[in-house]
Design a protein around this nucleic acid. Structure first.
Lengths: 223, 223
DNA sequence: TTTTGGGGTGAATCATTGTTCAGTCTTTCG
DNA sequence: CGAAAGACTGAACAATGATTCACCCCAAAA
């Protein structure tokens, strides 16, 4: 034998793997899922088209890797924000607001990864993210119900309703863009608050209480 | 001259135009937007591929015609249901519930026309439907606010939140399918009620009142 | 019935993209 | 250094699907 996977080589391979996923992410950030095309992505990553196939058996797997990477980091953030909250209801508020705030930060990417239409082959990998996110919300809703903070209800549909309201209201194609840079930050925060409030009230939280929860929890989520 | 567009000819031309749109609708109903392909659609309509181009300059226009046709009929139904209601708040409830009930009836088509991802060229024609629908909701929300039935709020985002909750909860990819035929009808109604209730509460309607409104209005919308 | 002009046809063409693979380059180690 | 084992390259290929167009057909009018 003469060639071994020395540590140096492994490091380079990993770096390339990541570079390719990063290139795909950049492409999606700029032009949505449709912009993830092998040749351009390869070029952006500084490799040839064929090389991509040494790292991913097909384009679908590449997209899968990207979605999984995004999914992991976003859900982790949501979970962390929720876990840091003092009670089940504020945990729910914090989680939802965090998701919204982070998605708004990188609207295009968030939309591409979770909702933008693509061909059916690629669809399944995204459903997992969507499902995981809904499940996370659902678990928090369940906890709040069990703690007596919310009325008994269909938690699955409630979680979907929350998710849909956030997606459509914040990063959907009709969602208003924040205007100038000056007001942008404030507007983003306000938008997240508005939608989070909407979702919480939808679950049956009384308005006054919901408002307090949202104001209390949206701030850390934006960091 | 020897050939004129006699009435008979015009009738045939119109019939073909409609047959092609209908074929596209059938295709979308079965397989989503991706199933709208010129050759199969043409075959379904009983014409040759080239003929489609005598009626529509491109596939995009064909999809545009389909979306517009759906958009018109759905928005008309929503408007009719809302107009028949006794007050602004029940009008809103009736409109939303009607949209939901009708969408659930033909989930796949509804999803395809309003939300399923497609290429960006075709995207713009669908935005109009989405925008019109949101505008319809927004106008009803505005009326309810003006009538003192809802607290003052950002009506644009509220309308988007409602729309998103209905879409995601009823026809989104994660929305639970109704089970057997026996229970299907009841489940559909229940699903519409659950989400409508969620949306109304999100706007600030107090729970008890909202529940009454929904029960009152969802029934006619299903017809 | 014949002329005439638009309508219809559908195989061929074009365009786009994911995927492959024969040849080349790099790295490791005796 | 030189052989061995992989990794990389990118032009060629394949598959899909929209669009075209040279030719045929049919209804209307004379």
């Amino acid at each position: 034998m003469a060639y071994r996977r020395t540590e140096n080589v492994v490091r380079r391979l990993n770096a390339r793997h990541d570079a390719i996923v990063d290139a795909a992410r950049d492409a999606a950030t700029e032009g949505g899922m449709a912009a993830i095309q092998i040749v351009p992505v390869a070029a952006r990553a500084g490799v040839a088209a064929g090389t991509v196939y040494r790292y991913f058996p097909s384009k679908i797997e590449l997209i899968g890797a990207l979605v999984e990477s995004e999914s992991e980091s976003e859900i982790k953030a949501v979970r962390r924000a929720a876990d840091a909250a003092p009670g089940p209801l504020s945990a729910l508020a914090a989680g939802v607001a965090t998701f919204g705030a982070r998605a708004l930060r990188r609207r295009r990417l968030a939309w591409a990864v979770i909702a933008e239409p693509i061909d059916s082959d690629t669809e399944s990998v995204r459903l997992k993210y969507r499902r995981d996110l809904a499940a996370e919300f659902e678990a928090r809703i369940r906890a709040a119900i069990d703690g007596g903070h919310l009325p008994e209800q269909d938690t699955e549909r409630a979680a979907l309703g929350m998710l849909g309201a956030m997606l459509e209201g914040l990063i959907g194609p009709l969602a208003p863009e924040p205007g100038d840079e000056q007001a942008a930050h404030a507007r983003l925060r306000e938008a997240v608050q508005t939608l989070t409030l909407f979702a919480l009230r939808g679950l049956g939280v009384v308005d006054a209480h919901a408002r307090g929860l949202v104001v209390q929890t949206v701030l850390p989520g934006e960091g």
